[in-house]
Write a protein that binds this DNA or RNA. Structure first.
Length: 433
DNA sequence: TCTGGGGTCCTAGGACCC
DNA sequence: TCTGGGGTCCTAGGACCC
């Protein structure tokens, strides 16, 4: 038995924990650069705001409907996520944190009333962390995800599903007839792994509901849509095809990419931006004790603007796997210089670290033909990370990132940022009796 | 004027190997 | 006129997820 627990409207929910006056109000959290809505409170959804709606298109609701818009505060969400996950873990034996707001929990072998247990964990998360969440259970991950969707929908839209399925829904405890009724009411696009494209193709073939999909012939699904959708169909039928272990494997790549606050066409600020992204990516790499074998750097103009497009990228192999910031920055800048062309309004650039391995897996010896031994700077990097962790991000940095603290033309817009209540001493909320 | 960031997996096609 | 079979690796692109 697998459970999927997930925080409701997580980012908006976290902001509400620290500003209770937001409860019940329309709230959106904006992406980096205050570009578009990436989280919405229930009241914001009721205003018709969609996931990914650009801010400039919904801005008028600020005045006319009391919409509150906040810049994404990932330091805060990440910390609150850790707290929520810790409490959710009590539901079962093992937990796989799947995203910032949801985790799969293996409940195989847990005895007693699973639904009652889930309700208990749910109210504990609400009381201890302040975040309302929903829990779905089923024989497979896909069924658990679907159960979670039903738990949420039953809570949000009374009458859509039987009321006892609200907040906690265990599909495995239903009779075949009850299950069929639920599958028949649920659009196929709600299934984990069925996105807009496949939904459209399915609809063209008369497949509209989960029940329609489950009844499809497996070889047909395989032939027409491939192995991914076949697995989804099998999972919906209760046959497990996606193991928790598969999903827990270490990262295969690390990226740091950003849209700029305003477009950039000169090489110098681009070098600053790319150097800074490579440094951040290097920090993430060291955090997971990894080494990168290659660096990809890219830059492109806005895909939303008319006119000539420019989009180039390049992979720069590293002579040997490394987690040394200066080597990563050097490679990224080298790639950037190779793809750079003057005269373009660059809107976004990024750095990706590829061919990752664990540092302790580097077994290959090396015949050193270089006249000078290159110093191992692992300890230097550890010290740099420690200093930055203690005194603030970017406190020690490579010179090509430019001076930190000063906002540059490429730095992102965050005009509605809330305090980092739980991760910065100066921002700690003060309670007065 | 103004449209995020970070991932995964699968497939097809080309280059290359013996 | 007529040119194999079996395999790997790499890349680009598409689709999906949150």
């Amino acid at each position: 038995m697998i459970a999927l627990c997930d925080g409701n409207n997580f980012f908006a929910g976290v902001e509400t924990v620290f500003r209770p006056s937001l409860a019940g109000r329309p709230v959106v959290v904006l992406s980096n650069n205050d570009g578009c809505a990436i989280a919405r409170s229930e009241a914001a959804k009721a205003l018709g705001i969609k996931m990914g709606d650009p801010w400039f298109k919904i801005k008028h609701l600020e005045e006319h409907a009391g919409l509150v818009a906040l810049s994404a505060n990932f330091a805060l969400y990440g910390d609150m996520s850790d707290r929520m996950m810790t409490v959710m873990a009590g539901l079962g034996f093992s937990q796989l944190v799947y995203s910032i707001d949801e985790s799969f929990i293996d409940m195989t072998g847990i005895r007693g009333d699973l639904v009652a247990r889930a309700h208990k964990v749910r109210s504990r998360v609400l009381q201890w962390v302040g975040i309302p969440c929903c829990i779905g259970m089923g024989q497979t991950k896909t069924l658990a995800k679907l159960a979670n969707h039903i738990a949420k929908t039953a809570e949000r839209k009374p009458g859509s599903f039987p009321p006892h399925l609200a907040q906690v829904c265990n599909l495995a405890s239903l009779t075949p007839a009850e299950l069929r009724a639920i599958f028949t009411r649920t659009p196929v696009g709600e299934v984990w792994g069925v996105g807009p494209k496949i939904s459209e193709q399915l609809a063209a073939g008369g497949i509209n509901t989960v029940q329609d999909l489950v009844q499809l012939d497996v070889p047909t699904v395989r032939a027409r849509w491939g192995v991914t959708l076949e697995r989804t169909v099998r999972e919906l039928r209760g046959q497990s095809c996606i193991e928790l272990d598969d999903m827990a494997s270490p990262r295969q790549e690390i990226a740091c990419t950003r849209s700029f606050g305003q477009t950039v066409s000169e090489l110098r600020p681009l070098i600053e931006a790319v150097s800074s992204y490579a440094s951040t990516a290097g920090e993430k790499l060291r955090k997971q004790q990894g080494l990168a074998g290659a660096v990809r750097v890219f830059a492109h103009t806005s895909p939303f603007r008319p006119g000539p497009r420019y989009a180039r990228s390049m992979v720069v192999p590293l002579r040997r796997p490394t987690a040394d910031t200066s080597e990563l920055v050097t490679a990224a800048v080298k790639g950037l210089q190779a793809i750079y062309e003057p005269g373009h309004q660059i809107a976004k650039a990024g750095v990706m670290l590829l061919d990752l391995i664990q540092a302790d897996k580097l077994l290959q010896g090396e015949l050193n033909l270089e006249p000078e031994e290159r110093p191992d700077r692992t300890r230097l990097m550890t010290a740099v990370d420690a200093v930055n962790n203690r005194y603030g991000k970017g406190c020690v940095h490579v010179a090509t990132t430019g001076s930190t603290g000063r906002p540059s033309e490429w730095s992102m817009k965050q005009e509605r940022l809330t305090p980092q209540y739980t991760t910065r001493w100066a921002d700690m909320p003060i309670v007065r009796a």
